[in-house]
């Protein structure tokens, strides 16, 4: 190889870098970024499409919605660290409160901004078991039996996992007369049956459905139906326990960011339209529970068994501001009961 060859190589490298450097990204009229949690990918994919069409029809403007998905806690952390979200649609109130207190980018009274405490949809926690339910799992008490492997994510990193934990806690509390020591023992046994704690709800679903680990998955109602659709009803069955938790995943405008970018109008419309008939129908079809079911045709709401749902605002938990540090903070109840498998 002679010197000119080498020069050519060098020249090509430089030329390539210049070419790619000028590519850049094309932006539509307005772009807003929705930072969301893991299981909402399919929901927001459908909703974004509908909203873009709605906004175009209403105002004539073209809006582009960007999506970012991940574990709810990790996503909140990214927004605190400067991820330029216009709106956040997270798994629980505690994660939005973290943005409020740690970065002050969201007004403290964000819950009053939209109806139903800014939760346009609710969900609950149910079980997914293998076809034929070989371990006969019907209720929370079946999860602590010997030889049952439970798949649930880590409540330290996953919003969904915290709902799972609280649902188990609520069951235990109702069945042992409110004795906290017994609650701890029950939930401790449940986590002793968990061979692995994934960092996010979607990771747990993949562990259970795709990797074939465990006898029962505790997870989001919508994620269970999605897994059922993806992997076929001949592989799995959904089990509704008689009691569970009422999960209210909230939405909020990231005030500091929309004011800096001048996107407040479209961001507010984006979240506000979640309460419309069209959006509530999309929500129902994606196996979330619409906040305004009266707007949705009865045929579009999936039939689910009636089960008792306990709210986070129940005196048992006293809301997220109390429950978060008490159960999931450093040295909280979860830290006391969970011992990783040896």
């Amino acid at each position: 190889m002679t010197k000119p060859h080498f020069k050519k190589l060098f020249g090509a490298l430089v030329a390539t870098s210049i070419q790619f450097g000028t590519l850049g990204f094309a932006f539509a009229d307005t772009t807003i970024l929705n930072v969301s949690y893991d299981p909402t990918r399919e929901l927001y994919k459908a909703y974004d499409e509908a909203f873009v069409a709605h906004w175009k029809a209403e105002t004539g403007e073209t809006v582009t919605i960007q999506q970012s998905h991940g574990g709810s806690g990790a996503q909140a952390r990214a927004v605190i660290d400067g991820l330029d979200a216009d709106v956040v649609t997270l798994a629980l109130e505690g994660d939005i409160n973290a943005i409020v207190t740690k970065s002050k980018k969201i007004n403290p009274d964000w819950r009053k901004k939209f109806e139903n405490n800014s939760a346009p949809y609710t969900s609950t926690i149910i079980f997914l078991v293998r076809k034929g339910n070989p371990k006969g799992i019907k209720d929370w008490s079946d999860l602590v039996k010997d030889g049952v492997q439970v798949i649930t994510p880590n409540p330290k990193t996953s919003g969904g996992a915290r709902w799972n934990y609280l649902a188990a806690w609520a069951y235990a509390n109702a069945n042992d007369g409110g004795d906290e020591a017994k609650n701890k023992e029950f939930v401790g046994k449940l986590y002793a049956n968990a061979p692995v704690l994934d960092t996010g709800a979607r990771g747990s679903t993949v562990t259970f459905a795709q990797k074939g680990i465990g006898d029962v998955l505790i997870g989001w109602e919508n994620d269970a139906y999605l897994a059922l659709n993806e992997f076929g009803a001949d592989n799995f069955e959904i089990v509704y326990p008689p009691t569970s938790i009422l999960a209210e995943p909230p939405v909020a405008i990231v005030d500091a960011n929309v004011d800096a970018k001048g996107t407040r109008k479209v961001a507010e419309a984006y979240l506000g339209w979640l309460y419309s008939k069209e959006a509530q129908t999309i929500i129902a079809k994606n196996h979330y529970r619409p906040a305004k079911p009266e707007l949705v045709d009865a045929a579009d709401i999936p039939k689910t068994p009636e089960i008792k749902l306990i709210s986070i605002d129940d005196p048992l938990f006293g809301g997220w501001k109390k429950a978060q540090p008490y159960h999931f903070g450093d040295g909280g109840i979860f830290d006391q009961i969970y011992k990783p498998a040896q």
Binding site: D38, R41, Q66, S68, H69, G70, D84, G203, E230
Partner: peptide, 22 residues
Amino acid sequence: SGHIRGLTNTMPLHVEILYNEY
């Protein structure tokens, strides 16, 4: 990355996302 679809996902990150979407 921030994991913004179509904007800040590199190929390895995109592989994980697609896998998690079944």
